[in-house]
């Protein structure tokens, strides 16, 4: 029982770190958004593992996972909308090019 849980938790940790690595290194906005999703789903997996094998007598964990899924879906929907608007307006498909905000005259 505990061994199964540990395996799941380790898998979740791996997913989480993979997602984080992706966010910090990938340049395509869509992939970056997907990597954020991977991090969130890693958390969902973690919670599920605890809920199923942690020996608790209620459904809190399962409900929590549903909430995580729903909210992250909303978040990614907004993310994709913003991404599309950016592509249309400026033709940007690279996160590295999103640096105009610092380029404005900010110093005396």
């Amino acid at each position: 029982m505990t061994q199964t849980m540990t395996a799941y938790v380790l898998l979740a940790a791996l997913l989480f770190v993979l997602g984080l690595y992706g966010v910090l290194t990938r340049r395509e906005p869509i992939v970056v958004l997907l990597c954020v999703e991977v991090m969130l789903q890693a958390v969902a997996l973690n919670v599920l593992a605890f809920a199923k094998y942690g020996g608790f007598e209620d459904v809190t964990g399962h409900v929590f996972v549903l909430f995580i899924l729903a909210v992250s879906a909303a978040e990614v929907a907004v993310g994709v909308a913003v991404f599309l608007a950016l592509v249309r307006q400026r033709g940007v498909d690279d996160v590295v090019k999103l640096d105009t905000l610092h380029a404005e005259r900010q110093e005396e």
Binding site: L24, L98, L101
Partner: peptide, 10 residues
């Protein structure tokens, strides 16, 4: 503050 997402994340 270079304005790069990656830098801020790191």
């Amino acid at each position: 503050h270079v304005g790069q997402l990656h830098v801020y994340g790191i």
